[in-house]
Design a protein around this nucleic acid. Structure first.
Lengths: 341, 341
DNA sequence: TTTATTTTCGGAAACGTTTCCGAAAAGCAA
DNA sequence: TTGCTTTTCGGAAACGTTTCCGAAAATAAA
């Protein structure tokens, strides 16, 4: 792998390297004919400027880093596609790493990125990230970081978020409008900001419609299928079935669904279900699951745009929080029903 | 973001930059005390060697590139996790790009990687990649490329593949052992090597068990849910239902399943189904789908290992093709049944 | 024609490293 | 002490660019 360098082209054309550089960078002080000649010859020789040398000189790498908690659900990959859309066009490379929901791994990734001199970072915090001190320092030093979805209010930087409160409210209200009265919320660890917001939305929707919030109305399940299964089985065993369940995410809802089906209950006939953060699964399972879809591509594009602006402005910046709209995709699992007596 | 450089440390310590470099690179010609002193001071000052400068000098970037056709199914993300496992440990960065099943996009990505001077490439070809000339040239020039899953036999390089023939054979034989006689295969474009192999496995299994291969035994469906739906609907309309269908992938099988359910047919009672390249969906849908699982992490690790060896050996290398084993996960969709008369 | 201005280009420094070469210092044997 | 080897370090070149500075050439103005 011998690469053609600017010097090779210069030698071939009997001119100086600076002229070649000018031709490639479209400077004003070069004659059109020489530029065309150089570009043609360069193409013939297979020359293209070495990005590493450029980076070293310009003191920026034209790379941005993306660190996400996981790769397995389609949510983050879709966000990344949005991010790439923006950056590829601008000639940036996108480095992607996944922290596997571990704080240490996340920090390691971020440090690796920093070490690699990425020009900016797009980050979604892992579940067990409590200590954001390191990121706080980076931001204070002026290192561009944009957070999305899993954010921390301790960090004063650009953020792209989803209005969990609002959409949890809508999702719950949808169940109420369908005629369900005894509605339960399967949530996850209260320490996560998004779960707090979804709980709040759920509670406020019930309040608005004067429905009682009982002791068992909010169940700390979790984000996995097994969590939904476990809690659902408990309810079944206690013979304490609600009319409907609003779940913290699709996985949890699917777990509940599996368990209900296993015991022969009908959905939505006996229990209606609503998920959140729509995955591809939602419309494939039986019955199709009502869920709140997030605009994944747009989240990615927006985060990328914010980061790009911050990188290019290089000056003072005012941290901005962009809240994107979602969409409640109503499917069979939460349809209105008339109970067969 | 002002970075501390080796010169800053040298000035602070009143020594030369070469000494600092020696300390960091653990050279033999430095006194232990000076080294410790330097390392301590460097740490205090927050210095770490600039990887770009190093890359420029060493003529390699310590980055490897991964180009995959898509991100949406869990298959490729899981492979990537395996790749990362290997490379992160070795101090390599992993650049990931997705070609969106488009040849042009794939080529662009590869060129971007090359431009960025990645030390090697792990590649899975997109569907409409027919012309592998460019990659052929790269390989001839000695650029390390490892292909996986979607490979081309025109390219003479390391490959990690899955024995599609064998597992298609097993999957078909499984259906036969369950008592199904009239078995159909939903395949995709014959031009893809893996589909050819799966067809061959299917056919040979039928032959071995002396089952007839009819005109309609092999249907060119496609890889999407809609493809499975479309072809299934045709069969239903023609009133020409088989006992069982072996599908080229899970998506196609799920499409078929949806259509069967829509028309009130039972699975596996009326038609049994088997998928391929197991996705997470397989065990979540109703009924759970029998499918051939590929060892995604292992595929990634193996490809990474091969690439690493080639990069580090830097010499002549003998292209190697590693075939990994899969696993048939039998679930309800293909269980034995006794037809209710 | 002479002078001033503009256009076009070459030379060299700089980015932050590593490594080769050589030299000073230190150790050792004679 | 002298001469030789070994240890330890500094200087400088090199990696492939971009850009500043200045100079030559071309053009315009006088």
């Amino acid at each position: 792998m011998k690469h053609v360098t600017i010097k090779d082209v210069a030698r071939e054309l009997q001119c100086s390297v600076s002229t070649i550089s000018r031709a490639f960078n479209d400077k004003y002080d070069i004659r059109k004919e020489t530029r065309d000649l150089i570009l043609a010859k360069a193409k013939e020789m297979g020359y293209s400027p070495n990005p590493m040398a450029k980076s070293l000189l310009k003191q920026c790498s034209n790379q941005i880093g993306v660190v996400v908690p996981e790769f397995i659900n389609s949510f983050f990959p879709e966000v990344i596609i949005g991010i790439q859309e923006v950056f590829i066009k601008k000639g940036y490379q996108v480095l992607i790493m996944q922290s596997n929901e571990s704080f240490e791994s996340e920090l390691e990734n971020v440090k690796a990125m920093e070490n690699n001199m990425v020009d900016g970072l797009i980050l979604s915090l892992s579940f067990d990230t409590q200590n954001v001190e390191y990121y706080e320092n980076l931001i204070k030093q002026g290192f561009p970081i944009v957070l999305f979805n899993r954010v921390s209010n301790k960090l004063n930087t650009h953020k792209v978020v989803f209005d969990d409160y609002k959409w949890a409210f809508f999702a719950t209200e949808h169940l109420i409008y369908q005629g369900y009265k005894k509605i339960v919320h399967f949530t996850t660890s209260h320490s996560l900001s998004f779960s707090q917001n979804r709980i709040k939305g759920f509670v406020d929707a019930l309040k608005k419609h004067k429905l009682k919030i009982l002791e068992g109305s909010i169940v700390e399940a979790g984000l996995l299928i097994s969590d939904g299964e476990r809690e659902m089985e408990k309810l079944i065993a206690a013979n304490n079935l609600p009319d409907a369940i609003f779940c913290v995410n699709d996985m949890c809802a699917i777990g509940a669904m599996k368990m209900l089906k296993k015991y022969g209950y009908k959905i939505p006939g006996d229990v209606a279900l609503v998920g959140f953060t729509e995955t591809k699964l939602a419309e494939l399972i039986d019955p199709p699951l009502t869920s709140v879809a997030q605009p994944t591509h747009e989240i990615g594009r927006t985060a990328a745009q914010l980061l790009l602006e911050q990188i290019e402005s290089k000056g003072i910046f005012v941290p901005q929080t962009v809240t994107l709209n979602g969409r409640l995709n109503v499917r069979e699992s939460s349809m209105k029903h008339t109970k067969i007596l």
